[in-house]
Design a protein around this nucleic acid. Structure first.
Lengths: 201, 201
DNA sequence: ATTGTTTGCTAACGAACGTTAGGAACCAGT
DNA sequence: ACTGGTTCCTAACGTTCGTTAGCAAACAAT
């Protein structure tokens, strides 16, 4: 059972509503009074649960960052697996986070720059490490012949471009369910790179 | 010669500085006092040249939209050319706009949602038409056998994803000059689609 | 019964916001 | 010399911002 109330705790509700608003209108353009109205309470009441507006953004960004990082660790846990397998699992994990938590992912991707120091630097560092891991996987895949691309660095950019674009077009009520989307996107992105690639379909 | 002063007109300077600020900090998070400070004047002075803050955003967004549209028209001017050629020229033109005017392009891509009606609807309509044109070119290219992709709609998404991502990584002081970037990006994006493609290099 | 936690209110603070009014300096063309 | 346009200033307007203080109701645990 739970020690917390049966539904979402108020703080969790605030996080959720703030995430949706930050995504739709942008962090800077969302006022605390707007957030309060969406929750059906007054602006001042929010501060019984949080310390500041930026704390909301901070929690969203770093929670999503944690999910991405955990997925990456799980995908590369098997040291003996080839780089191309690591890459496939990592892309798949990344897509699943994007789909499971589209609003928070969109905030993570576009609103992080409104963090202030020192959180901003910490976030950027996490981001760089994450991207570097993908670049390494692709480079190792090319080195061992499993992947083929005229320009690994550029391939990494294209990969992240496609991943980052997903929240812009994904609709939960679309024809494909999340698993199918993740599978298809992974297949498509890897299909363009692999020298010999057979999708699981 | 020119009837305007030798350097940029003040209004053009304001546009330029606003573009850079809107890009770096976001439209909503950029204050008129910040903009004024960057120009070395007082906030009130700006209103001798413009009517409102949103007018700045409006001008940036619709000017870039015009450039994209003009490029698309030029690329598809030759009715007799095959769809794959139209597509190549259109991608090339798009990339050149992105590179020539990176700041304005980034504002166009990310800040347009802060436009208010009716400009917002007008902008969205332009955007949809532009994307539809690319989708059609890809679909026709697939139909006539010049292009190959398991999912034309998804290919269009990936294409726009890569294009939209460019301002995020492009640096004018990089190794490649604008022409080389445009050529390489066009080659790479089309290379993944074409059934038989020989880059111009 | 009491205590502590959660939740929310009203009222207001100082700061920052976009914007305007009114005036002044400068400069080009007549 | 005069005129009209461009440019910028100071001062302030009304509004909205994030946030705080102080208080109160509801409820769970002891």
């Amino acid at each position: 059972m739970e020690s917390t109330p049966p539904t979402l705790s108020r703080k969790a509700q605030i996080d959720q509503t703030a995430t949706a608003l930050f995504r739709r209108r942008g962090y800077a353009a969302t006022s605390m009074r707007e957030l309060a109205a969406a929750l059906g309470i007054e602006a001042g009441s929010i501060y019984s649960h949080i310390r500041s507006k930026e704390e909301l953004l901070h929690r969203i960004c770093f929670r999503v960052a944690d999910e991405f990082m955990a997925g990456l660790r799980a995908a590369t846990a098997d040291d003996l697996a080839p780089a191309a397998v690591h890459l496939r699992l990592a892309i798949d994990s990344h897509v699943r986070v994007l789909i499971r938590d589209t609003d928070a992912s969109a905030v993570f991707l576009h609103e992080w720059r409104h963090l202030s120091e020192p959180a901003l630097s910490e976030f950027v560092q996490l981001q760089r490490g994450y991207e570097a891991a993908f670049r390494d996987m692709i480079a190792r895949g090319v080195a061992d012949g499993a992947l083929r691309t005229p320009d690994p660095a550029f391939a990494t950019l294209t990969l992240f471009a496609s991943l980052t674009w997903l929240p812009n077009w994904y609709r939960p009520d679309g024809k494909l369910n999340p698993d199918q989307i993740a599978e298809r996107l992974t297949d498509q992105l890897l299909g363009g790179l692999a020298t010999d690639y057979n999708p699981t379909t």
